[in-house]
Amino acid sequence: MDGTGILKGLAVTFKRMLDTYIDDFKRGKKRYYTEEGIRYRQSAEVKGIFTVQYPDEKLPVPEEFRFVPFLVYDEGPNGERKDRCTACGICSKVCPAQCIWIKRATNPKTGRPIPHSEEFYIDIDMCMNCGLCAEYCPFDSIKMDHDYELATYDRHRDNILNKERLLKPASYYAQIRPLNYAREEEAKRQAEEAKRKAAEARAKRMAARKKAAPPKKEDKS
């Protein structure tokens, strides 16, 4: 009683305030508005002030961070866009909020479906940013974006994203998720390598069989 509690409490906050100044003094100008400073404020040894002054400095998001999804397209040598989506529909089937709509393209001549999406919509007013679509996409075509600055004045106009707004280049993807990108590219390269090797082996086998088989057989068939 007799008010020592209040004094104690004030001492605690005062110490916190002092911590800030001591730290400022120790680290100098590097403490604010620098990458190093922000990293320090994210680390386990941070003391004193903790605030990240958005928008002047932004808390970096980790690689796995997910906000709304986007579609990846590869850039051709002449700048043409080749989107990776094959309209297989797995993302729309796995989406818990059912906020993905895909229209599969058809071949105008035969009417048969072709592996390409004609239209692709995501309603970000329903999206729960769970990342299941990106996790189960077998073509690395849909990924979760890092851009969280999406506030708008009119959701009816802005918040159903169509293909135009969803498509982003693979280089952007590589930039926001470098490790994932490298891993996927490596896996792709290996798959291709294996394919090539398998094809080579098959060709070799065929050649060997041809050699071994008597030429008469060919005449028969």
């Binding site: 529909g89 089937k93 059912q98 993905i100 709509w101 895909i102 239209e119």
Partner: peptide, 15 residues
């Protein structure tokens, strides 16, 4: 049950 048939392959976004 989900997944809903209206989402794929003839999906057209609606609210």
């Amino acid at each position: 049950h989900k997944p809903y048939k209206s989402r794929w392959p003839e999906g057209k976004a609606f609210r």
